[in-house]
Amino acid sequence: MSELRQPEADLQDPVQAQGPVEAQLFGAEGEEAAFPSPSSSSSSYPVLFQENADPLHLDPLPLKVADLVAFLLLKYRTKEPTSKAEMLNIVLRDHWDQFPMVFSQACECMQLVFGVDVKEVDPSERTYVLVPTLGLTCDAVLSDGQSMPKAGLLVLLLAMIPLEGDCAPEEKVWEVLSIMGVCAGKQHCIYGEPRELLTKVWVQEGYVEYRQVPHSNPARYEFLWGPRAHAETSKWQVLEHLLRVNTLDPRSLPSLCAEAVSDEAEGA
């Protein structure tokens, strides 16, 4: 089914080390899968489509998308560029005519699910590099060969916080994340145990603050932007990204846009 599983020396070990990406994207043994929905979602948040599915009964096109995502993840780990010719030769050898659609969906998946942008650097040669979305460096080191990039979830969390008035209630965060199958205490095929990721790992790394809501009894908690998030990106950049992936008109969020522009001007 996939040329990625052929025993080429430069691809075999990393792909085998992480396991079949098709299983992680489409679901395996009843585990919920993660895959991007069309950009026309009416929600204020990017939503990742979730369903249980048997890869053997899926259409060839999504499987080719998964193969290309696996290839792009390998390139991201090894910090190597790629090209249209290379992708066609390795992933879509017999499906050249489907490249535009497969490539578009794979890029959307890389951005929404993993927080990785595929950027063209040479239009004449159609070469591309893979870089973290919004310049976030939380996935700078993926040394064990098994970790999946998690910046996509961080971008979503950072987008939710200003949308909730700069303090996102924990219950609201889990309500939104549960739509995409990310639930506190439940192991996720890409993000691991999300409660630890949100309330410990990213707090320790300085991306978010996790604090008790003042005077709440019983205690409730909320998320705020941390100093590292402010250092690496801005509300305006996150808002712009949110609007782009959801094809929203900036006029639909006037007060938030005005606040983001003000923050950007103050930081200039």
Rank of each mutant, 00 (worst) to 15 (best):
L48S: 10
G115T: 01
V91Q: 02
R126H: 00
P62Q: 02
V47I: 14
Q50V: 15
R93K: 15
Q98L: 15
K84S: 13
D94T: 15
R93H: 14
L61A: 14
A85Y: 09
Q111H: 12
K84H: 07
N89W: 09
L48P: 03
C109G: 09
Q50T: 13
F114T: 01
F71Q: 03
L73R: 04
A85G: 07
F99D: 10
L58V: 06
C107K: 03
Q111T: 02
P81A: 12
T127R: 03
H95Y: 13
E125D: 08
L61S: 10
V113T: 13
V91W: 01
P123C: 08
E125S: 02
G115K: 00
V102Q: 01
A66V: 08
D117Y: 00
R126C: 04
M87Q: 13
L68P: 09
V102P: 00
L72Y: 01
Q50F: 09
F71W: 04
P55E: 02
T127N: 05
Y128N: 04
Q105R: 11
L58A: 09
N52Q: 12
S124F: 06
D122T: 08
V121H: 09
N52G: 12
T78K: 15
T82P: 10
L72R: 02
C107H: 03
K64S: 11
Q105V: 12
L112R: 09
L112C: 03
D59I: 10
D97G: 11
K64P: 02
A85F: 13
V121G: 12
D94A: 12
Y76I: 01
L73W: 03
L61W: 07
D117V: 00
H57Y: 11
P62W: 10
D59A: 14
K119Q: 10
Q105D: 13
D97H: 14
H57V: 11
D67C: 11
D59Y: 09
V129K: 03
F114G: 01
V65L: 15
E80Y: 05
V129S: 01
A66R: 02
V121K: 03
T78Q: 15
F49Y: 07
K119M: 08
H57Q: 14
V113G: 02
V129I: 08
D54R: 14
V69G: 02
E80R: 14
E125K: 07
M101I: 14
